[in-house]
């Protein structure tokens, strides 16, 4: 029982990282209707920036995270402006391939700058581990921090999209781009802000991910990126609570599947669950069913 509990907590922690990454995917998809494949690599860049800031510049962890968020925000907005904006009217596949090209570009730039050897990422979390049930369940500081960060981000984002003017603009653009423009909303600026928020969250996710799994390489971001993308689809792509629930469920399924069914087949189980869910709810858990009109 205590073993199960500790797996569950680990699962929620991993799932929280997926959820934070999935938020970036889902917001960008909701607004720009594109799958931003480069998102996973923004995570990697964020982790490298934090790594350099703490290891080479000797900055405190808090400042390093802020710096990583800043750099990633700029990076996200630049990518959007240079590569995706010229393709606003282009067919979806063209944008998808551009995003894939961007992902290659980021990975290979990182390879040139930081080299292929994995770097051991020092944890930025200084919370002490907590023992539950007379020390039978140990929860590391990283786990607590990840779950807390996830909750804070969730509340902040719900408030932002629900209450602020920019958040309303975002929802309007994702509903109907043309109508939003007629109402005087600056669509391009809204999309840029979305990319900025998504990329800043990716930086946070990168730091948290590498604090828990301290192996930093140019390809670190790609697998969590794919899984988070799956999580976003799982929850219904375009929906913010969906990304949250999808991410956490996916993390829990992955850890429990690896622990109780088979370590080797962990990833296969995650994807199999995704397929089963999509077969019964073809637009994800929280997705809206779009009716087809002739």
């Amino acid at each position: 029982m205590t073993l199960f509990l500790s797996y569950l907590i680990n699962g929620i922690s991993l799932g929280s990282v997926y959820a934070i990454i999935a938020l970036g995917y889902t917001m960008v998809y909701g607004i720009a209707k594109m799958l931003n494949f480069a998102h996973g690599d923004v995570i990697m860049v964020g982790a490298y920036i934090a790594f350099c800031a703490t290891q080479y510049a000797g900055l405190p962890a808090f400042v390093a995270v802020l710096l990583a968020m800043l750099v990633c925000t700029l990076l996200g907005v630049t990518i959007e402006g240079l590569a995706y904006k010229p393709l606003r009217q282009a067919p979806g596949l063209a944008v998808l391939i551009t995003a894939i090209g961007m992902s290659y570009l980021l990975q290979n730039s990182a390879l040139l700058i930081w080299g292929a050897t994995p770097k051991s990422f020092p944890s930025v979390v200084s919370l002490p581990p907590v023992s539950l049930f007379d020390g039978r369940v140990k929860v590391t500081g990283e786990t607590i921090m990840t779950i807390l960060a996830n909750i804070v981000i969730m509340i902040a984002l719900t408030q932002f999209t629900g209450r602020t003017k920019m958040g309303k603009a975002m929802r309007a653009v994702s509903e109907d781009k043309g109508a939003a423009e007629l109402m005087g909303i600056n669509v391009n600026a809204t999309i840029s802000v979305t990319f900025a928020i998504g990329s800043a969250l990716a930086a946070v996710a990168g730091v948290l991910l590498c604090s828990a799994y301290p192996n930093l390489m140019p390809t670190t971001g790609s697998m969590p990126g794919i899984k988070a993308f799956t999580a976003a689809v799982f929850g219904g792509i375009g929906s913010i609570p969906g990304a949250m629930v999808g991410g956490i469920l996916l993390g829990v399924i992955e850890i429990l599947g690896k622990a109780y069914i088979s370590t080797e087949l962990g990833d296969a189980i995650v994807f199999a669950v995704l397929i089963i869910v999509l077969l019964f709810k073809p637009s994800g858990l929280f997705g809206k069913n779009v009716r087809e009109k002739v």
């Binding site: 799956t230 689809v233 080797e264 962990g266 990833d267 994807f271 199999a272 999509l278």
Partner: peptide, 24 residues
């Protein structure tokens, strides 16, 4: 049975499952 992006993600998932099963 699926459409559009959902179909794409499921083919991705199957590709990953095949790779994972091949590992075993």
């Amino acid at each position: 049975r699926l459409r559009g992006d959902y179909l794409a993600i499921v083919t991705l998932a199957f590709g990953e499952i095949i790779r994972n099963v091949m590992n075993c």
